[in-house]
């Protein structure tokens, strides 16, 4: 679902003013455009832009010293570190497992595959608090499986793995479906073994999707709140992730330091998404 989101760039102004007969003619700018654009911008500003700007403003209000002090208090720093490290690990597990899942869903066939394929999107649809509750029940103190991960970092990682599961699968799957089997057969006819075919033919074609899925999983992971609230037990220095830490600060009316940690999170997400965009552009220029 989300896979389309970052790739849909065809609406941008990237087209050169070249073709004499453009394929999709656009209406010239006029009063209705201005009116619609104005309404959309007001809506976006009131709900997204001004509030986010307020967060940045709040964190910068008392100068860079205050900002730095807020994000480096022991508990904030520990939460940020845990969030970033856990998210990197989770993203990497997703990179491998997501690709494997996509592979099995596309290339293998077994009874129940269709059900499993549908189920992959469940983490997108299931409320995060429900996910957290169910995971705590399954992997908590009363675990029917006898696995107790409650209040541990592994437990946090499991929650993050659950909510980020669809990203890599759903970006890699369509590419794999479209992948030309003739290419693999051509390689085989030239004497390439299975591993060589995977490494030299399939992997290079999947890589852009794998990277973008992994980046999306990472940004989702650092932002995650609901699913980690219950299973983490909210233990500072141990299992408290950044979003939960910010929540605590807001509860304590300490909005300034909440804003500082929020800004740090936003900056990390922004850097990852911009890097992803640059890598994709670089990749599409090459390819």
């Amino acid at each position: 679902m989300t896979s389309k989101i970052l790739e849909t760039d065809s609406t941008g102004l990237g087209t050169p003013p070249g073709p004499v007969r453009p394929v999709a003619r656009r209406r010239p700018p006029g009063a209705p455009t201005a009116l619609g654009l104005g309404s959309a911008m007001i809506f976006l500003s009131l709900i997204v832009l001004i509030p986010l700007a307020a967060v940045l403003w709040k964190s910068a209000e008392h100068g860079p010293g205050f900002f730095w002090k807020s994000v480096t208090t022991p508990d904030a720093w520990a939460a940020l570190k845990l969030t970033v490290v856990a998210s990197i690990i989770v993203a990497l597990i997703n990179l491998v497992m997501g690709t494997l899942i996509a592979w099995v869903l596309v290339r293998d066939s077994f009874p129940g595959k269709a059900v499993l394929d549908t189920l992959i999107d469940l983490p997108f649809a299931l409320p995060t608090i429900v996910a957290g509750l169910v995971l705590l029940e399954l992997y908590g103190a009363d675990s029917p499986l006898g696995i107790n991960l409650a209040y541990t970092r592994v437990g946090v990682a499991v929650a993050l793995l659950f909510v980020t599961l669809p990203f890599v699968v759903r970006t890699v799957q369509p590419v794999l479906l479209e992948l030309d089997r003739d290419m693999e057969q051509a390689a085989a006819s030239l004497g390439a073994g299975n591993w060589t075919i995977f490494r030299r033919i399939i992997l290079p074609n999947l890589l852009p999707a794998m990277v973008s899925g992994t980046a999306l999983a990472f940004t989702r992971s650092i932002a995650e709140f609901g699913s980690t609230v219950l299973i983490s037990g909210n233990l500072p220095f141990k299992t408290q992730v950044a979003a939960v830490q910010i929540f605590g600060q807001i509860e304590n009316d300490n909005t300034a330091s909440a804003a500082a940690v929020s800004t740090a999170l936003l900056v990390v997400a922004f850097v990852v998404l911009v890097t992803l965009d640059l890598v994709q552009r670089w990749g599409s220029r090459r390819g």
């Binding site: 003013p17 070249g18 073709p19 004499v20 007969r21 453009p22």
Partner: peptide, 8 residues
Amino acid sequence: AFGATSVL
């Protein structure tokens, strides 16, 4: 003209 390209 469409952009810089004169068509008619």
